[in-house]
């Protein structure tokens, strides 16, 4: 269990990245969504013990992250995949994972080898394991990052944009991998790909301007947009009148827009069942216009 109470983070020069967040995160997959600059990465770095909060308390499995000992104890149970992942270019995947495994406290050689072999198999890098990391594609590097986050069977896994750069097949594989790993663990998944959340998380929070503006299930978020999602087909002119365009599709007969809002009678609008993306967009537009979610 992760307990966060009145957490704030103010960077030098007064930039407020996190603004008085209180939250409890239990076991299972927890999704974190929000626009760029919402404070998601700062929030996750604080939970990972990389940043010190300016005010507030945070406890990870009963370890207070304000104390050094608490932070070290929490890190012993953490798997972390940062957004901006870096690897040593002249080590190979096996060596890099071995290095990370030792730093994570897996000191038994046989256990380490077994875990590394299993993870390399899971991320489908067994054949490339002995190649230098600098020869890897972006997606392969990401997979090494995922493997290192899962090393040591951590109780808490924090992954920031884990599927960025992965092809659709790998994305689905990784999503399933995380979903399987979620049993009895806490996994915090931050992403811009809302579909990843809808497919794997039962609980999510949406952030904006350093605050949590929504906390609940993906279904509840979808329900908020119900009755506000429409498709409008025009001959090319963009629908206006306070509508938010979610997607545009060029058809032989015209242009089909998926919109959020209340279209007036000028358009031939057909109601559609909203997706999580619609719910997320609905939430963000309501915030922009000052309507409470």
């Amino acid at each position: 269990m992760i307990t966060i109470s009145h957490l704030s983070k103010i960077y030098r020069r007064g930039v407020k990245a996190i603004d008085d967040i209180s939250l409890e995160i239990g076991t299972g997959m927890f999704g974190l969504v929000g626009p760029n600059g919402a404070g998601k990465t700062t929030f996750m770095r604080i939970i990972a013990g990389l940043l010190k909060p300016t005010t507030g308390e945070i406890s990870v499995f009963g370890h207070n992250l304000r104390s050094y000992a608490g932070k070290q104890a929490a890190k012993a149970q953490l798997g972390y995949l940062p957004q901006d992942l870096g690897l040593y270019p002249n080590l190979n995947a096996y060596e890099f994972l071995d290095y990370m495994a030792i730093l994570k406290g897996i000191t038994g050689g046989a256990d380490r080898r077994r875990q590394i072999d299993t993870l390399l198999e899971q991320v489908r890098l067994t054949d490339a394991a002995k190649r230098p990391l600098k020869t890897y594609s972006g997606g392969m590097k990401r997979r090494v990052g995922i493997a290192q986050a899962l090393l040591g069977d951590p109780r808490l896994i924090i992954v920031d944009e884990p599927t960025a750069g992965l092809d659709p097949e790998e994305r689905i594989r990784f999503r399933n991998l995380l979903a399987d790993a979620a049993a009895g663990r806490t996994i915090i998944l931050s992403t811009h790909i809302v579909e990843d959340i809808s497919q794997s998380c039962s609980d999510l929070a949406a952030m904006r301007g350093g605050k949590v503006i929504y906390r609940g299930s993906p279904q509840d978020l979808i329900a908020q947009a119900r009755g506000s999602a429409w498709t409008i087909t025009t001959q090319g002119e963009r629908p206006n009148g306070g509508l938010t365009i979610v997607s545009t599709l060029q058809l032989a007969t015209g242009v089909q827009y998926r919109v959020l809002g209340s279209p007036d009678g000028n358009y031939d609008a057909a109601p559609v069942e909203p997706s999580l993306e619609d719910g997320y967009m609905w939430l963000m537009t309501q915030r922009e216009t000052g309507v409470p979610a």
Partner: peptide
């Protein structure tokens, strides 16, 4: 950029 990874370990 491996320092962030190291900092997340004990």
């Amino acid at each position: 950029r491996v320092r962030e990874l190291f900092d997340s370990t004990p």
